[in-house]
Write a protein that binds this DNA or RNA. Structure first.
Lengths: 244, 244
DNA sequence: CAGGCGAAATATCAAAAGACATACCGGGGG
DNA sequence: CCCCCGGTATGTCTTTTGATATTTCGCCTG
């Protein structure tokens, strides 16, 4: 087993967008963390409809939350990028109402739900952070719901590309090649409530209008302003955001 | 101005599903509350895309959260019933990314976001409750996203009726006439990402199969089990749930 | 280097849902 | 009492999206 990372040197601290912890908070988080979890691309982080006692911070890599219906129809609820936190909803429903799957090799920090009360009582600041993270994720799901419910296929795809691009950007994951987009068209279809075929058609339409280029899994947006106008999507500007 | 209700005698306390507060918590909530707000049916609680410094508990009546696109397309994100809490997302985005509108005459308790930190530091238990409420609302939005993204029109409508029925039931809002359903078909359409016409057709289909009856705004479900099977929806069983 | 495989691209046809028009229905106000 | 108006119901036609099938492409592996 490889050495675990010390929370006090968490690589996320290097990313500007994240706010920092006091030494006491960092020490508590370190003690709160149960273990690290490494999942390879395509692997399962949380099994759908199973019981689960853990909370997760995604430290590196991509993942997504999803639900499936009995005949296999799948809806991706949202994509998880580094710094995202998940698992709080199990506190409300008994078991996990959704699954989580890794899109790339991913590293996660695992926390025990059983000691959540400890966190709130000893570090209210971290309790506040959890609420913040929960509200942030809901904001993203709200946005997805607007897309799936009321945007056309073209608008939806444009919205998703802009959304993921913006999120990658603030995490420092965009370089001159563009951003690494580790999703298949099937994932996009499942996130947007479209069929695979129609997703393909729609992507083609955007690409031939010069609005994006994809080479080797790296996405570049040709005309961000026009994309945003098509999608009628303005990313939420987030200042210092917390993480655990 | 009519007398305000004392939080220590909050009518929600009479509803079994809600867990209770310690006297200290109740006193804090009382002091935290800025004012009460009475909105009539159809009135605006929170204006979309405006700045807003408040948090809200819906104490009685129905409301809904929504977003609109510039050409008027509207997506209802979720319905708010008594005990529901909203406004935390403004803590993440600067201004309110969604509007809230009352469906019936409604009473709300208004809390200042500026004193939120006070709540976390002095009553971590209430901080935990806010996280719970946030996660609970997200669970509902997740479920809506699954519907809108992957269920057929028939399944969606069935799911929504069951969902609202179940929620009303645990709040003690169902009597022998059924539940009061204060929504128009346009609201249902906007919640489910359907057109008004198609919503009407679909409702007709369910009604003529004897699955529900609506008289005078009161909904009765003819065959709950069958409805649930159509919708493939199992309401989340919620035990003691917090409120502010 | 050939074969196999997952993902992407594309054609054809079918179904679901939307748009528009119009009629109906019931309650409140002049 | 009648008219207006919001909400509901329904018919007809169009558009969008989905289903199925087939081909292509790039990559990995043997």
């Amino acid at each position: 087993m490889r050495n675990e990372i010390d929370c006090r040197q968490c690589p996320l601290k290097a990313v500007k967008i994240f706010s920092s912890h006091t030494p006491e908070e960092a020490a508590f988080i370190q003690a709160f963390r149960k273990r690290e979890l490494h999942v390879e691309a395509g692997g399962t982080v949380v099994r759908e409809a199973a019981s689960n006692d853990d909370l997760y911070t995604l430290r590196s890599g991509w993942a997504f939350r999803y639900r499936t219906l009995s005949d296999g129809r799948r809806q991706i609820l949202n994509f998880l990028l580094p710094g995202d936190f998940t698992g709080l909803q199990q506190e409300v429903a008994g078991n996990t109402p959704y699954g989580v799957e890794a899109l790339t090799d991913a590293e996660l920090c695992v926390f025990p739900r059983s000691r959540l009360w400890d966190l709130y009582s000893r570090f209210p600041s971290l309790g506040y952070d959890l609420t913040w993270l929960s509200a942030h994720q809901e904001l993203i799901v709200d946005e997805n719901l607007v897309s799936v419910g009321r945007r056309t296929a073209l608008e939806r795809v444009a919205m998703l590309l802009v959304h993921l691009y913006k999120r990658s950007e603030v995490l420092g994951l965009v370089d001159q090649r563009g951003m690494h987009l580790p999703v298949t068209q099937q994932h996009i279809a499942d996130a947007l409530g479209l069929s695979l075929v129609h997703t393909n058609r729609t992507l083609r339409r955007l690409a031939s209008a010069g609005l994006y280029e994809l080479d080797n899994g790296h996405l570049r947006l040709g005309d961000l302003t026009r994309m945003q106008r098509i999608a009628e999507y303005n990313a939420i500007p987030v200042r210092g955001r917390p993480f655990l």
